[in-house]
Simulated assay, not measured.
Amino acid sequence: MTSIRHHPSDELLLAHAGGWLPAGPALVTTVHVEQCTRCAARLALLQETAGQWLEDTPASALHPHALERVLAALDVCDEPEPPASLQGPPPLPAGMAWPRALAGLQITPWRWIGPGMRYSRVRLAGDDAFVFLLRLVAGKYLPRHVHTDREFTQVLCGSFHDGRAQFGAGDFDVADSTVHHLPVVQSGGECVCLTAVQGSLAFDGLYGRLLGRLAGLS
């Protein structure tokens, strides 16, 4: 893998270490940590620190009916759907494989949203983020858009430039409501990203709005 230039902030890694991130952003962060030795070391240190903090925190008594409530909640949970594997993924760079964090998840087949553009939905139970894989060939772009909340992206292969910076394989990005960007896939092959969107995207122009509705992003 090429050198990783963009990483989660320490604040985000701390939230991940403490289990405070929602499922979608946590999955994207986990995939990055799996591919980045620097962030894996940072996360391990933060987890150790958080664990020590918990050990030093005085114990609090649970509600007397806490166990009953947990068991009751488990009883009403729907039976999970059988996991599905990735369908028709593009080849990744030599020596790379799909992230281990995606193993066993329910992932839909690739769906066409335009020439040279595909996406696949990653379904996570109990998460309000829209999590998906986006696959674009060189020269294609996601129309210019802004975010109502945060968008977490991990580049699995290829690269794109969104007007702020270039993001290559292994890079991580968080875009919020202050970011108005147009990600364009760079030359050298397909770009595949794992993305979790909290809230929705607001696309510029008719084409962008139609594409967003087709993919369920707006």
Rank of each mutant, 00 (worst) to 15 (best):
residue 133 L to C: 12
residue 134 L to E: 11
residue 134 L to N: 10
residue 137 V to D: 10
residue 138 A to M: 09
residue 138 A to R: 12
residue 140 K to G: 14
residue 140 K to S: 14
residue 140 K to V: 00
residue 140 K to M: 13
residue 141 Y to R: 14
residue 143 P to N: 12
residue 143 P to Q: 09
residue 144 R to Q: 15
residue 146 V to K: 13
residue 146 V to T: 14
residue 147 H to F: 01
residue 147 H to C: 06
residue 147 H to L: 08
residue 147 H to R: 06
residue 149 D to C: 11
residue 151 E to F: 01
residue 152 F to A: 04
residue 153 T to P: 07
residue 153 T to E: 05
residue 154 Q to E: 09
residue 155 V to L: 03
residue 155 V to P: 04
residue 156 L to K: 05
residue 156 L to Y: 00
residue 156 L to N: 09
residue 156 L to Q: 05
residue 157 C to I: 02
residue 157 C to P: 03
residue 158 G to R: 11
residue 159 S to H: 12
residue 160 F to Q: 01
residue 161 H to A: 13
residue 162 D to V: 06
residue 162 D to I: 08
residue 162 D to Q: 07
residue 163 G to P: 02
residue 164 R to T: 13
residue 164 R to A: 10
residue 165 A to I: 01
residue 166 Q to T: 15
residue 166 Q to A: 14
residue 166 Q to P: 01
residue 167 F to Q: 04
residue 168 G to C: 02
residue 169 A to Q: 12
residue 170 G to K: 07
residue 171 D to P: 06
residue 171 D to M: 01
residue 172 F to I: 00
residue 173 D to V: 09
residue 173 D to H: 00
residue 173 D to C: 07
residue 174 V to L: 09
residue 174 V to N: 06
residue 176 D to K: 04
residue 178 T to M: 10
residue 181 H to W: 09
residue 181 H to L: 11
residue 182 L to V: 05
residue 182 L to R: 15
residue 183 P to T: 03
residue 185 V to P: 07
residue 185 V to N: 08
residue 186 Q to A: 15
residue 186 Q to C: 15
residue 186 Q to R: 09
residue 187 S to E: 14
residue 188 G to R: 09
residue 189 G to A: 08
